[in-house]
């Protein structure tokens, strides 16, 4: 059986500097995988190559058995790749529910001008019900009508998750979800994500600095350093690897497993 996401031999350089050096990453359906590494290791570059924001210099990205290397960003999203952002990207002047509504609407085909003109572009009750269902699942039911300018950072991140969920993704890419959150908020976020994942059954690829979060959340991890894969395997074992510690701390570890 082939993996859900198969990235093979991804290579990318900027102005002669190698950012990714023949990176292979697989994510199977329904599993939770971490991608860790120190600052500037190439995690975000890899992310962008999978999403189509950057084109890799060489290598292939297959999703669900299909080569998506040539697709544009929104086309890849429609294949079933959802994402959240490290620096929150929400739609100004919209309420929480509207974020989910537009995602739901986009999934069901594109807007037609004549439908809008006849007033059929307004939110339908069944759409609102589907959005509210996801909002309840994420614990955002109480703020459904709130403009996003009034949310906390943690809630904003959940809105991003909810928005991605409305597109019914097979794979959710989380870009540093703990960034800017305190310890408790991070734990809450992890719990919520786990709950939603068990209900919806999508796979997660998590890019994260926070080693603690990754250790508690993922089964399997890849470690990048200077664009090269330096370790992979079960997360706990990977984190014990002296090479990984050295990459993180910049000091040679004296002993390891």
């Amino acid at each position: 059986m082939t993996a859900l996401l198969e990235a093979r031999g991804i290579r990318k350089s900027f102005a002669g500097v190698m950012a990714l050096h023949f990176v292979d990453i697989d994510v199977d359906a329904g599993e939770t995988v971490g991608l860790i590494g120190p600052n500037g290791a190439g995690k975000t570059t890899f992310f962008n190559c999978v999403l189509g924001i950057l084109r890799s210099d060489s290598g292939v990205v297959r999703f669900d058995g299909r080569d998506i290397s040539g697709l544009r960003v929104h086309e890849r999203a429609r294949c079933g790749i959802g994402r959240t952002f490290q620096r929150i990207e929400l739609f100004a002047e919209s309420t929480v529910r509207e974020h989910l509504l537009i995602a739901e609407r986009t999934r069901h085909g594109t807007g037609r001008l004549w439908k809008d003109l006849l007033g059929m572009g307004r939110p339908h009750n069944d759409e609102i019900a589907r959005c509210d269902e996801v909002l309840e699942l994420l614990g955002l039911g109480a703020v459904a009508e709130a403009p996003i300018e009034h949310l906390s950072l943690g809630q904003g991140r959940l809105v991003e998750v909810g928005r991605a969920l409305m597109t019914d993704p097979k794979l959710l890419l989380l870009d540093e979800p703990s960034s800017g959150l305190d310890r408790k908020e991070t734990a809450d976020l992890a719990a919520t994500l786990r709950k939603v994942q068990s209900e919806k059954g999508f796979a997660i690829l998590l890019v994260e600095h926070d080693v603690e979060f990754v250790a508690g959340f993922t089964e399997r991890s890849y470690v990048l350093d200077f664009g090269t894969m330096i370790a992979q395997g079960p997360t706990r074992e990977v984190l014990r690897d002296p090479i990984v510690r050295e990459a993180y701390l910049g000091v040679p570890a004296t002993e390891g497993t």
């Binding site: 080693v211 603690e212 250790a215 508690g216 984190l239 993180y248 701390l249 002993e255």
Partner: peptide, 25 residues
């Protein structure tokens, strides 16, 4: 500080003292 940081960053592992010790030069 080195030891502090090692336990701090890899806090999740801090139970395994043997692993956590990372010496600085």
């Amino acid at each position: 500080a080195a030891e502090r940081v090692a336990t701090h960053v890899f806090e999740n592992d801090s139970g395994n003292d043997g692993d956590a010790a990372a010496a600085a030069g």
